[in-house]
């Protein structure tokens, strides 16, 4: 595996907002001391609870956060700090983005034109549409005329237009049928094998397991475990964090058993382990901060992981 392409160190993102009836703004911290890296030729899948800040991580890397966001920590690309100010040329060329929501498409522009953008060519767009099995007439359609799956494929075509080196994909597969989703992921794998680094945010753990190299598990704004794909494939005992195990048990093919409760709200986080109130192994050791430590080749934030 090649050099580190994207490195995120101690990222903290907070939103400054009014809460309750108070007229003073408060900071609501949504991502806490998060670190991860994506190497050349690697697919890192990010899975985890909805509302845990996965899309905010993508926005932070791409410098797309709204104005009221307060960001600290280091985000580097190829060793250089990454931001709209210092490296505006990278975005859209070397770094591309597949957004989660289909309302990122311009509703008043035909999708063929949108995919070509300002830097692409018509020939490449036609090639990509054929690859993703979008019919000849699709390029002349407006977004409202597309199905969910077709819009998703249009977004993906737009992102791979210029042969990017780093792709941030926020939920690239919902709406695609199994065959198409697999094909898309295999295409990602081919891109990765040619040296592209891919950060893929997804809920579809099964699908991600087919192509990803490592899996980062998100909970309440931080990463609780980074494990190799092999650990997920070998079953729940190879996994380290109790939340990861709970995710594994909740898959429809593994029992479909949800654990009770919900993830803590960003405004009222516990001081110790974020998962403690839903954890079956909770004891005194969980009250303190949970630093990241290495266990069996993976990283985990849990005092009990072995």
């Amino acid at each position: 595996m090649g050099k580190t392409l994207l490195n995120v160190e101690d990222l903290v993102v907070a939103f400054s907002m009014y809460r309750g009836d108070s007229l003073k703004k408060e900071n609501l911290e949504v991502i806490h001391s998060l670190s991860l890296d994506v190497k050349e030729g690697e697919i890192l899948a990010v899975v985890g609870s909805s509302g845990s800040g996965k899309s905010i991580l993508a926005s932070a890397v791409l410098d797309l956060l709204p104005k009221n966001a307060v960001v600290s920590g280091k985000i580097t690309y190829d060793g250089k700090p990454l931001s709209m100010k210092t490296t505006p040329d990278l975005y859209g060329k070397e770094i591309s983005f597949i957004p989660q929501s289909v309302d990122y498409l311009d509703p008043l522009m035909k999708v063929g034109k949108q995919v070509q953008g300002v830097k692409g060519s018509k020939a490449r767009q036609e090639e990509l549409f054929e690859k993703y099995r979008l019919g000849k007439d699709t390029e002349k359609k407006y977004p409202f005329q597309l199905s969910g799956g077709m819009a998703r494929r249009v977004l993906i075509s737009g992102a791979v237009m210029g042969n990017p080196k780093l792709i941030i994909a926020d939920e690239p597969t919902p709406g695609l049928d199994l065959e198409l989703a697999m094909e898309t992921l295999k295409h990602f794998r081919t891109l990765a094998d040619q040296g592209t680094g891919i950060l893929m945010i997804t809920h579809d753990i099964d699908l991600a397991l087919n192509v990803a190299d490592r899996i980062a598990v998100f909970y309440a704004g931080t990463i609780v475990e980074i494990a190799s794909t092999q650990d997920f494939l070998s079953g729940r005992d190879a996994l380290r964090h109790p939340y990861t195990k709970a995710l594994y048990d909740a898959l429809p093919q593994n029992g479909f058993k949800p654990i009770p409760g919900a993830q803590p709200y960003a405004g009222s986080l516990p001081s110790g382990c974020l998962f403690a109130d839903r954890c079956p192994y909770r004891d005194d050791a969980c009250a303190g901060a949970q630093p990241e430590r290495e266990v069996r080749g993976g990283k985990v934030r849990c005092a009990h992981a072995t």
Binding site: V47, G48, S49, S50, S52, Q100, G148, E171, P174, G175, H203, D204, I205, A246, L247, A250, L251, P252, F256, K257, P258, I259, A262
Partner: peptide, 17 residues
């Protein structure tokens, strides 16, 4: 209509149950 693809698997299982 594809109501749970944007949910994590635990929430998915909770909501479906």
């Amino acid at each position: 209509d594809e109501i749970s693809t944007m949910l994590d698997v635990i929430t998915q299982a909770q909501v479906w149950n």
